[in-house]
Design a protein around this nucleic acid. Structure first.
Lengths: 166, 166
DNA sequence: TAGAACTTTCAGTAATTAATGAAAGCTTAT
DNA sequence: ATAAGCTTTCATTAATTACTGAAAGTTCTA
């Protein structure tokens, strides 16, 4: 297989994985492209490589910067912006994890905490309270693991993981 | 707040959480409804409660059964199917985790394993190989943790988690 | 302060994904 | 064998989500 095809297959696959995890396809593809590119890339270059429009490129590059996994950089004598991705996969995983927890899990925990205070003694309400409490307990626990992960350094977590899987 | 509203808010929130994790809204809502309902429900009842069509209800109930988190049951003297959800949240989490790993993570690992064998010595190809290897290592590790989790009983994993977070 | 080089926005459009409901398919009872 | 009661399918339609590209905005240079 040609390197060009290999590269395309990788970008493509990463896009598919992204969409099934709620990250939009183009965002995942731009990230994939930057991950495997040793130098920085301009918006133009990203547009050309992925055959996407300026607006689309701009929006998704910004989203990647918001997530903290892509950084803007400059070249002397050039006015254009250039971009590169953090190549440390653990760091990337930590940032994504943290960001998604903040956006998706934390608001749900907040709602669950409220809802489990519902008053009443019907069998229906009891079942409700029990389920919501169990979900809240689970989700909070999960979130605290995520938080720990997000703040950890690679070696600490890696050691722990090894123990866990052993 | 009325119990009815509380219930609706819960179903609604669970639907939102579901969509951001690649599980379709209705599927998550039916699951939420069954989780908080002490008795079994028929397709009709689910349709009425969530204001959805017969086809939609049927498709998503089947998906929930495929995932192994909802079960069909019968009532003596009735021909209709009834459904209930497994109320054990840990068990549900295990099944979802396992299912998603199988559908989404494992195929990607397979592709990454192939791609990292790309031949060549350009700086570009070296960066590619390095990134893909790192992703593969990370994803495989993650998957083995998931697998361990999926096979574990609650107490084993809970104890491990406690240690991890401590 | 004019205009070139570049970035951002956003209304309109396209693509994707989910939902509907009528029809076809089963199953059971007589 | 048939019809009632129920489930499943799937072509059509609706809703959602993502993308485009032209125009407006910004920044830098001279």
């Amino acid at each position: 297989m040609e390197f060009k095809e290999t590269k395309e297959k990788f970008i493509q696959s990463w896009g598919v994985l992204g969409s099934s995890w709620g990250i939009n396809k183009t965002m995942a593809q731009i990230h994939a492209l930057l991950l495997i590119t040793p130098e920085v890339l301009s918006t133009e270059e990203i547009m050309k490589e992925l055959h996407i429009s300026r607006g689309n490129a701009n929006m998704n590059i910004r989203a990647l910067m918001d997530w903290g996994i892509v950084t803007k950089s400059f070249k002397v004598g050039e006015r254009k912006d250039f971009f590169f991705a953090d190549k440390d996969i653990w760091e990337v995983a930590r940032k994504i994890t943290r960001e998604r927890s903040k956006r998706e899990i934390e608001p749900v925990i907040k709602i669950l905490k409220d809802l489990k205070d519902v008053k009443g003694n019907d069998i229906e309400i009891n079942q409700f309270r029990e389920t919501v409490s169990a979900l809240e307990a689970f989700t909070s626990k999960l979130n605290s693991v995520i938080d720990k992960f997000a703040k950890s350094d690679e070696h600490w977590f890696y050691k722990k993981l090894l123990k866990l899987v052993k």
